[in-house]
Design a protein around this nucleic acid. Structure first.
Lengths: 98, 98
DNA sequence: ACGCTAATTAGCGTCAATGCTAAATAATAG
DNA sequence: CTATTATTTAGCATTGACGCTAATTAGCGT
């Protein structure tokens, strides 16, 4: 489980999350929407999946990625914690399932 | 003004923001709170300042850093945008090279 | 089994981030 | 002006991220 913030640090990965807001999408369709090669996109997917922000489901030969809302909510909470809204125990590398 | 998310990507920088929630702090005091050298901390401060997340004010020989709440709020809004709460125009940037 | 499509992994080059030590700047005190 | 303290900048090494092409795995259909 790598860092959520690290996953959010790359503009392409954030754009992938944005696209997935509309609903699940296949790796190929997702990759076609960006000006980088599929292998490169695959590594971005891996980073997002590793952080827990997205999930993968194999359908046939295709892999369908979808947003993992609960983890995205954690990211929101963490950033809000940096603001000062919370008590004092934010950014605590919580555990998530995949 | 570099990317806010890039600034948030490093654990030390997030911890600095967390510390600054309690109020402004000098570069030296801030640096003493982390297990890295002052020059290294200085570069973390520069990254945070460059992203707009913190602001610097020279007091005498010391420099006082403080949280820039409005930009932190922007970060929260951006992450919430990734979730899907907003309409569809978040994370307004389409550049992907560095 | 063979071929086709979808996606990932392997291998490589390049460039930026991170850390250090040493030197430079900024401001104050004497 | 010199000394001292606070902080940053310069220079260097190491590591990791990112992108590519080529090769590999996975599943389906014939």
């Amino acid at each position: 489980m790598t860092d959520i913030f690290e996953a959010l640090a790359h503009p392409v990965r954030r754009a992938v999350l944005k696209k997935l807001r509309a609903g699940p999408m296949s790796a190929g369709d997702l990759a076609d929407a960006f000006p980088v090669t599929k292998p490169t996109m695959s590594r971005h997917f891996a980073a997002l999946k590793d952080s827990g922000l997205i999930r993968a489901e194999r359908i046939g030969t295709t892999i369908r990625y979808r947003l993992n809302v609960s983890v995205t909510e954690d990211a929101v909470a963490a950033v809000m914690g940096l603001l000062g809204a919370g008590k004092d125990d934010e950014d605590g590398e919580n555990s998530h399932e995949r």
